[in-house]
Write a protein that binds this DNA or RNA. Structure first.
Lengths: 160, 160
DNA sequence: CCCTCTCGGTTGGAATTGCCAATTTAGCCA
DNA sequence: TGGCTAAATTGGCAATTCCAACCGAGAGGG
């Protein structure tokens, strides 16, 4: 959603709650799916379009926005016998979205499972052992979602 | 997004990738913000409307959808001297979305920080000590977002 | 030199979704 | 009867998304 401009009077776009600012970047339709595709290794316009079935105009708009936000990086590549074309690669910020994607996958698997079983699993990239997302304390202890509170931080204003 | 009907030919709504199914429930504009508000303790229509600044027609639609999806539960309450009214409470599934909200907060804080500092922090509900979201292995070891792979699960079909 | 192919987009127009203000509904109380 | 409040619903307009068709730049073929 690049559109929750000023939901609450008196809050400028910088001061708004972190969730709103994150959703401004990846909350629009198709954005997170593009990132998921990039995590799978896709890099080209046509790969995203074919794999997602997204309209090409929207795809172009989203790719540009993700590049501008620093989630993707646009690079030129050239295949032998072809002209130079564009490809899109995850930045560190884009890699970090694995956290959000993982949260959506895990939440769906846990609370809205598909009868046929999990459609996607998360594994350690090195040894292929399953991993899961959890809240952890400084001492390394895991907490359930109901044992965590969101509290205003230093920059909180009217809303957070 | 309750609208990625059949992005890819041949995939019915049940068989689609878990992310798409999760986004079908909470991917529409305002949905996650409503859940965030509920995590903060808000329960009433007017509280959501005033705190979010969301249009009341959209709010009504989203609340109904979240109730239908089992994220919120609609209850009746009565204040002395008033008629019976509706309130909305998180189910266990809704609580579970703390994972997704936490991921968005943490990603935003880490990669797109607001100059004034973090607007929201995550703490242990019991002792108020800070917590963070991380991928953890079965042995309790934490992994970074770049050390995790998403692989097809048992129910994966064309896409995942 | 022209014709055609591919990839990475643009463009125009219809359909859907979201926004805003005004109104409605239902019960409570005077 | 009329006013009050919370919870919506409605109508009209704006913004977003969708779809199909088109464009253009360079490569290769004839």
């Amino acid at each position: 959603m690049g559109q929750l401009k000023d939901a609450q009077a008196g809050t400028d776009s910088e001061a708004r709650c972190q969730i709103v600012r994150s959703l401004d970047i990846v909350g629009e339709k198709w954005s997170l799916l593009i990132v998921r595709d990039a995590l799978r290794g896709n890099t080209r316009f046509s790969e995203f379009r074919d794999s997602l079935g997204a309209p090409s105009d929207i795809l172009a708009t989203r790719l540009a926005k993700l590049v501008e936000a620093g989630v993707l990086e646009k690079r030129a590549y050239r295949e032998p016998g072809s002209r130079e074309r564009s490809s899109y690669h995850l930045t560190e910020s884009g890699q970090g979205l694995a956290l959000v994607i993982g949260a959506l996958v895990q939440w769906g698997d846990e609370f809205h499972p598909y009868s046929g079983g999990a459609s996607s699993r998360m594994v350690d990239a090195h040894d292929r052992e399953p991993v899961e997302l959890a809240f952890v304390t400084a001492s390394g202890e895991a907490l359930g979602p109901d044992e965590v509170s969101f509290v205003p931080g230093p920059a909180a204003r009217v809303t957070w």
